[in-house]
Amino acid sequence: MQYCKHCQVHVRGKRETCPLCMNLLTGREYSDDLDLAYPEIPLTFEGHLVIRIILFISIISIVISFVFNRVFPSHINWPVFVVFGLVSMWLSLIAVMKKKHNIPKTIMWQVTIVSALSIFWDYETKWRGWSINYVIPITLVLAMLIMYITAKIMKLGVRDYILYFLLDGLFGIIPVGFILFDWISTIYPSILCVTVSIIFTCAIIIFQGENIKNEFNRRMHI
């Protein structure tokens, strides 16, 4: 049994830091494998139905994009945008589920890399603005959708929801800057991104607000 001098509590298990204040623990009265507070149980997935639904929606989206492009011809190749967007979403979802122990960090890295590459290639191709008009807002929306789907499939804990709450707020602020500084010529993707961010943030507050508040109270010792 270890002891936290800051919280004045005993902590079971083989932890090095206190789960409440994250300060270093001191002393061990005994050392035994039975000292583990909880057995290590791997994360389980109940996402077979969810995956099938997402796959079905993806196929329908591709079909609708081709029909829409055929009925309403445009200089924008919407099927290509939809296909690349869905491929990115699936690759991100697979990568996130494989890196399930640090999902927010994985998503942040993916968003950062995709955004940076899109800006770089947009700049190298005589800057048409497609990176900030389309790619970055759509990437942020996909990231928020992946976070929501992953949280539902993997039944993540309150701590993960706190991180998602912060990330949703951050993702919603970025397109607001594009609009305020008048950097974009097509405003709809940015508005969509801000809207999705507000919806997801409100959903987290409404459905997980009490748990998040309790978690903050435990961490801040309120």
Rank of each mutant, 00 (worst) to 15 (best):
I184D: 04
D32E: 09
S74I: 04
N133H: 00
L117W: 05
I174Q: 01
P79I: 05
S115K: 03
G169K: 03
W121A: 09
V114I: 09
I113L: 08
L156N: 06
S190P: 08
T44R: 10
M1K: 08
I41E: 03
L180E: 13
I191L: 07
N23W: 11
Y123V: 11
N133T: 03
Q8D: 06
S92Y: 00
Y30G: 07
S61Q: 02
I191E: 07
F207I: 09
P79E: 05
V194L: 06
S131R: 02
E16Y: 11
T186L: 15
N69Y: 08
G177W: 03
M22G: 11
G27K: 05
F200A: 06
D182C: 12
P175R: 00
Q2N: 02
R15K: 12
G172N: 03
L145S: 06
K100W: 13
I132P: 00
E124L: 15
S61F: 00
L180Q: 08
K105W: 12
A151I: 10
G129S: 03
T112N: 13
W109A: 13
D122C: 04
K5H: 11
I138T: 08
W78Y: 15
S118A: 10
R70F: 15
T125D: 12
M1E: 05
Y134V: 00
I184F: 04
E124Q: 15
N69K: 05
N214Q: 15
W78I: 13
N133C: 06
L20Q: 05
N102I: 11
K100H: 14
K5C: 09
I153Y: 01
R218G: 09
K213A: 11
P39E: 06
S185L: 14
R159L: 12
I173V: 15
A203F: 11
E215N: 12
G85Q: 02
W121T: 09
T17Y: 10
P19K: 01
Q110P: 06
L156M: 13
